[in-house]
Design a protein around this nucleic acid. Structure first.
Length: 821
RNA sequence: GCCGGAGUGGCGGAACUGGCAGACGCGCACGACUCAAACUCGUGUUCCCUGACGGGAUUGUGGGUUCAAGUCCCACCUUCGGCACCA
């Protein structure tokens, strides 16, 4: 018998699979298709263990689907534009393009060492002109359909990455850059946006999507839908003749309209100057200046004491004609709702704090049902929603729940308001002042304004001869000639947009480019689209829930409405892996020195062992800390599999009992059933433990002389098929060495023989008062009555009963007997 | 503060209709092989009491439902992620 030397068999089979094109996925109408996709990697340098952890189980699942008769496509590519590769390039003084393509080359060979079933012919690289031509084309389509627009606004800017960021890329309480952790600052810039908000409502609909509940919850929270009303307030003329203006507020509590005692505008609200009286001008100006100076971090800290100043003006509450003072305060944000609120201090914490601080009236309009009546003048805390309406005109006496709708109807009928829905979701800012991205294909002309680059001139190529180090302005701007262009309308000299696109734009449609990565008549070949789309199984990290996964859904819906794609969703099933932590239970990082290098592991143990261990050592969706001695277990297991299958020592066919053979067959089919179920459920750890368990059983059975029997041969056959998706190389080698026909990866998944699964005799645990006291063995077809008497006949039970009859005997589903005494 | 996930042996984890808690593996202990070690193989391994037979306790904590709870319900604690002056 030869030894198991993974390094030899792995490279041998990888080469053969490659030559044979074993994993090529082509349109085949005779088979059901399965488009399996994993989130594409950044070519930022080395492949790390996290990549393996994401890719390997995805590959195993795709292989399982293949063996189940599906025509499976598993593509791979690179999200090659973007900051990580660019920053690394800057650090080392190498051109980002050179650096990126070197990284890709390196990662390709690392990826190949995994032995995954990728169809490399479909490789797509987002920084290739043949790719980004269509990224630009999509931008233009969005622009033409009114879904891309340019706007001057205060935007988030990372001073370290030297670029603006989308709202989704600003994280945490301190509002830091998602990439580098630096707190962002606000800049007033003209930038390109995609109208993601146009799809806010539809994005909340997850119908027909087999996505993890937690991802849906994250997206729902992020989109942040709130139902309420818009109400128009007119201002009162003052001594300064500042009347006659009006402004709209958004409220989620129109039922409390009668409890309004003041109004608050955001300091940036456009009406502030108009409404400020001469008397209050100095104070208001000072407050505005202070608010503008403060960083968002200070300003948005929730625990900060509320501050504000009075403008001198008043608004009329349209429901009751009350004159209410208008204040400005920085707790009202210009970026949400209308930048103006009605303040109901009795029923809102922030308004309450503010009113008490500045001595403004507090008026109760909801009395809780279960406590004594509350007085606005003396109450010490605000009162949340439920109760009975008081002092509320026509709403008085109704419950707060009914009052919400009654109030909306009331303001609508009176003509000063209407029901309205607000979302926290913002439009997607896609301009980046960086070099290494797809240039935004727009041209500005003094006369004709912004116009798209004509399709015939796409792609707008990224210039190679440019100082690509970031300065806060796009490096493309600094190139003397690149930005010069002709206006597509009048033909006069004009200027190109010099910003590049957010790389999330590239990754919003890469699943479409995989369909036909070199197709040049469109972003994808419609024939391929019709066969493969939508993506059936998508795997990747949950950290993209509010970024990539929202963007790509938006993108697909926008394309659908332009007639480019079909269906509402690009990805039917989503599964997330967890994170592999370092052995010290911390996130892996070079600075902590706890990084696990997959290349070394592969070299030492072989890819199959690394694959098996990554599937085995934790629940896939949870992740866990790495344990370097744990991998020894999977190595031992594979060696034992090897020995069991091809070591003919002790081969003594025919000397074992029928019962031994029957038991072996039963165990094989029982575990096959479990493994099949676990594959469907992405529970990879129990797939491997099931295989280990069966190996133990087969080892015992072989010792009992079952070697060479039909049951043994079937066991080996099924075992190798089950092993194939997990450890494809050793499975292929053993398949070949036992004289079976190449390739195991073209075999079908074995079918469970339900008859074989059934037990002949079953062991029934017997409890007395819920405590396990004995076990009885009965035939599997024993009736409940038989089981009951068998249990009562047990000596142990008799001892416990002491001659007395039991109070109650429960026979539970032929699984257990519980005797109550 | 709000939303979501997770708490099971020394460790990773299993238990998929409420029905034998601890599968499988790591680690550890002992034994076999060896001059020796490693490898490999075998046995044992939740904790406590006991020489053993046995017995008791046990799934973050406290209550509840049930013949029966890791699993269901209520309250809480810890921890990880997300959101957060969002009107």
């Amino acid at each position: 018998m030869s030894d198991y030397i993974p390094q030899e068999i792995e490279s041998k089979w990888q080469a053969k699979w490659e030559v044979d094109g074993l994993y090529h996925a082509d349109i085949d109408e005779s088979k059901p298709k399965h488009y399996a996709l994993t989130m594409l990697p950044y070519p930022s340098g080395d492949l790390h263990i996290g990549h393996w952890y994401a890719f390997i189980p995805s590959d195993a699942h795709a292989r399982f689907m293949r063996m189940n008769g599906y025509n499976v496509m598993l593509p791979i590519g690179f999200d090659a534009f973007g900051l990580p590769a660019e920053n690394a390039a800057i650090k080392e003084g190498i051109h980002p393009m050179k650096r990126t393509y070197e990284n890709i080359e390196r990662m390709r060979s690392q990826l190949r060492s995994m032995g995954a079933m990728w169809d490399w012919r479909r490789e797509a690289i987002s920084s290739n002109p043949e790719y980004y031509k269509w990224t630009q084309w999509f931008f233009i389509q969005l622009y033409k359909h009114g879904l891309a627009y340019r706007k001057l606004s205060p935007v988030d800017f990372c001073p370290h990455c030297n670029t603006t960021l989308a709202r989704e890329q600003v994280w945490g309480e301190d509002r830091h850059c998602e990439r580098c952790g630096t707190p962002v600052i606000k800049k007033n810039l003209s930038q390109w946006f995609f109208k993601t908000t146009a799809y806010a409502e539809e994005l909340l609909n997850y119908e027909g999507m087999d996505w993890p509940e937690r991802v849906k919850v994250l997206q729902t929270n992020w989109i942040g839908r709130s139902e309420g009303a818009l109400v128009n307030f007119k201002t009162v003329p003052t001594g300064d003749d500042k009347g006659g203006e009006s402004f709209e507020i958004f409220t989620t509590r129109p039922d409390t309209l009668w409890g309004v005692t003041f109004m608050v505008l955001s300091p940036e609200h456009p009406l502030v100057d108009k409404l400020t009286t001469t008397e209050h001008k100095a104070e208001v100006e000072a407050y505005k200046a202070q608010a503008a100076r403060q960083s968002d971090i200070d300003r948005e800290a929730a625990d900060k004491e509320k501050t504000g100043v009075f403008t001198g003006s008043y608004a009329i509450n349209p429901v009751n004609g009350d004159k209410t003072p208008i204040w400005i305060a920085d707790y009202v944000l210009m970026t949400y709702g209308t930048g103006a609120i009605m303040a109901v201090p009795a029923h809102d914490q922030r308004d309450f704090e503010f009113a008490r601080k500045y001595g403004i009236e507090v008026r109760v309009v909801i009395q809780p049902n279960d406590t004594a009546s509350v007085d606005g003048a003396t109450m010490t805390t605000w009162i949340p929603a439920s109760g009975t309406m008081v002092n509320s005109g026509p709403l008085t006496g109704t419950s707060a729940d009914e009052a919400f709708h009654a109030a909306v109807i009331f303001v609508t009928e009176k003509g000063f308001g209407k029901g309205s829905i607000n979302y926290k979701l913002r439009d997607w800012l896609i301009s980046r002042q960086r070099y290494w991205g797809a240039p935004i294909p727009m041209i500005y002309c003094e006369k004709d304004g912004w116009n798209p680059v004509p399709d015939t001139e796409l792609p707008v190529l990224l210039p190679e001869d440019v100082a690509w180090k970031p300065t806060g302005e796009s490096p493309l701007k600094l190139n003397p000639t690149w930005k010069q262009a002709k206006c597509p309308i009048c033909g006069e000299p004009a200027e190109r947009e010099t910003d590049t696109m957010d790389t999330f734009m590239c990754s919003s449609w890469y699943h479409l480019r995989y369909l036909s990565p070199h197709y040049d008549k469109g972003p994808f070949d419609p024939k391929e689209y019709d066969y493969w789309m939508p993506v059936d199984t998508y795997t990747g990290g949950i950290e993209h829930a509010n970024m990539h996964l929202i963007y790509t859904r938006f993108f697909h819906k926008a394309l659908r409405d332009m007639g480019i794609t079909e269906g509402s969703e690009p990805m039917i099933q989503l599964r997330n892996q967890g994170m592999v932590l370092g052995e010290d239970n911390e996130k892996m990082s070079k600075s902590r020195g706890n990084v696990v290098a997959p290349d070394e592991l592969v070299e030492r143990y072989g890819a199959d062992a690394v694959r098996s261990y990554l599937m085995f050592f934790a629940r896939w969706d949870m992740g866990a800390p790495w344990n370097s001695s744990g991998i020894d277990g999977t190595v031992r297991w594979l060696r034992r599999v090897w020995a069991l299958v091809i070591d003919p020592v002790q081969a003594t066919p025919g000397t074992c009992s029928d019962e031994t053979r029957r038991i072996l067959r039963r165990r094989v089919h029982q575990i096959l059933k479990r493994v099949t179920r676990d594959f469907k459920q992405f529970e990879f750890n129990t797939i491997v433990s099931g295989l280990m368990e069966l190996l133990n059983e087969m080892t015992k059975a072989r010792e009992a002389g079952v070697y060479g029997t039909p049951e043994w041969n079937e066991a080996v056959d099924i075992y190798l098929r089950m092993l194939a998706p997990v450890a494809p190389h050793i499975a292929e080698e053993l398949w070949a060495q036992t004289g079976r026909k190449y390739s195991i990866h073209n075999q079908t998944w074995p079918a469970v023989d339900e008859e074989a699964v059934k037990e002949g005799e079953i062991t029934i645990p017997v409890q007395i008062n819920g405590k396990l006291r004995d076990r009885v063995i009965v035939p599997a077809d024993a009736s409940e009555e038989n089981i009951r008497s068998a249990a009562l006949a047990s000596e142990t039970v008799q001892k416990f009963l002491g001659g007395k009859p039991p109070k109650k005997v429960i026979v539970a589903q032929k699984k257990l007997v519980n005797i109550v005494v």
